[in-house]
Write a protein that binds this DNA or RNA. Sequence first.
DNA 1: CTATTTATAGGCCATGTGGTCTAAATCTTT
DNA 2: AAAGATTTAGACCACATGGCCTATAAATAG
Lengths: 236, 236
Amino acid sequence: MRRGIEFKKKARIIIVDDNYEHLSGIKELIEIESDFDVVATATSASVAISLIKKYRPEIVLMDINMPEKDGLTAIAEIEKLELGVRIIALTGYDDPDLIFRAMKIGAKGYILKTMASAQLIYAIDEVAAGKIYLPATLSSRFFEYFQRSFKEETEEVEDEENLLNYLTQREEEVLDLLTQGITYKGVAKKLFISETTVKTHVNNIFQKLQVNDRTQAVLYALNNGFLNKRKVKIAI
Amino acid sequence: MRRGIEFKKKARIIIVDDNYEHLSGIKELIEIESDFDVVATATSASVAISLIKKYRPEIVLMDINMPEKDGLTAIAEIEKLELGVRIIALTGYDDPDLIFRAMKIGAKGYILKTMASAQLIYAIDEVAAGKIYLPATLSSRFFEYFQRSFKEETEEVEDEENLLNYLTQREEEVLDLLTQGITYKGVAKKLFISETTVKTHVNNIFQKLQVNDRTQAVLYALNNGFLNKRKVKIAI
DNA sequence: CTATTTATAGGCCATGTGGTCTAAATCTTT
DNA sequence: AAAGATTTAGACCACATGGCCTATAAATAG
């Protein structure tokens, strides 16, 4: 929109792809069809990382199907450097899990090799402008995967019998302190009750949770959303 | 594309909005501009839920800024019913947190009231076709929020000194068994070593983790990505 | 080839933990 | 008002746990 008025800095790009044919193909495409500046290319992730440190490009196009060090690991490593490099993942597969993982570790875009070249340029444009770019088809997949993984997560917790529901208020308080690694004495002091009372509560908790020591009780509590209960209430 | 050839079932829609003006506006818009069937409308979430149970619509347009029972809670409840209803969240705010939460609990679309009516129809079209629809601007926000929350999550774990790194392999094995709530005896059996050896390891673990009982050790391990280490290695 | 680390194991003792039983005061529910 | 659940508390006992110490074989590092 404001093109032509604002100063247009050519974004510098590094392309990484173990397939040399494809690499030079993309390079040419970008040089001809766009006004980005391809400052370097690499056919392996390790070389790419040193090049990135050297050239500090704005954008990295990263093939994530490479032998030895794979692209995802490379992306994670680059992100860790915190150089402000914006990485676009490039691959032949529209596997939702792959997309999800790439976005999770910080990729700012994800495009398929089969996509039209115009879309590649557009993606770079968007990412260079600070946005995140996923083609509509992929973002749909991403969302499905996202929702599915989230549903499983909450289902696991709410599923069937959650023995935590049988605990009384006081027992929950005691368990809460147990999950902080506090002893009988400590709990007694905090709740202003005697140590034996705490023991009684703890024994009742064990029976209700069907465990026989505090570690198992704490693990049960943690695995069954004891701490999450509050979090979920606030978060959703 | 295959329009006209395939049998076109009119998707049934229920619209929920506490603002009556707006509600009827959308209703008219849909009835005139699309061929969806608005089977009912509601101005409160609780009424909406009973209507949904009765009419079993394919699509629900849900305003998420409503008094009393808010839209997000309503969406969560409807999703829990597992009626296969596809919900589109409708609101005036493009708050990324709100978008994220809506998608998290299962909304299949999210559109702003300020958006053009054509976009609303398009969104319904997409969602009715089984896809998930987020306008480009919102999906960008969503992704940013997604990445940010994920980054924080991993940073918390990798941050600074992780005392777990000082543990030897054997100590990690022992701790692993402790995080499963196993006693000295059990650990000894599993590792084919004597009970006193286990105690020695455990004591060393305590010192390294700067704790003084197993519960605290387990909690430290869990909070500092002990179990995640493997997961992360496999997952990323 | 020594020095260090790691894994192994034992003893001793204080204290924490868990099992079981009883029981009273208080609060809910019917 | 009676029945039931919850919270409180005690006694008793077996055993698990944790602190502290020493010590040896094996592996690793310098």
